[in-house]
């Protein structure tokens, strides 16, 4: 089976800035992504959880796979967002079988 190498970016952010992150992805040509609810974890500020009704602290994970240049452009824009807002990003190379879907 032939595979193609693309870049994957995983972004964990607080729910209120999800729309801003989505807009930055779109501006970088990334229109295909998945948003997951992050339940709980531990960061540099200690343990966090979804806190239920308290919308402001809900965490989301955005997963996108795209060509390397698009991911690099999105990463630069989102890094600027992280100068004010909490969040983390992870990058990795991934193999896909249908590159036209990204």
């Amino acid at each position: 089976m032939k595979t193609h190498t693309l870049r994957k970016v995983e972004i964990i952010i607080e729910a209120p800035i999800l729309r801003q992150v989505e807009a930055l992805l779109a501006a970088s040509g990334i229109h295909v992504f998945t948003v997951l609810e992050a339940r709980e974890g531990r960061g540099i500020a200690g343990r966090w959880n979804d806190a239920h009704m308290v919308d402001g602290m809900d965490q989301r994970m955005v997963v996108a796979v795209a060509p390397p240049e698009s991911v690099a452009q999105a990463a630069e824009a989102i890094a600027q967002l992280f100068e004010r807002y909490p969040g983390v990003m992870f990058f990795s190379d991934v193999e896909v079988i249908r590159p036209e879907r990204f």
């Binding site: 607080e14 009704m53 308290v54 919308d55 402001g56 602290m57």
Partner: peptide, 11 residues
Amino acid sequence: SYIAAPAAIRI
């Protein structure tokens, strides 16, 4: 508040 305000303040 603990619903409307936290979301607004986080943004």
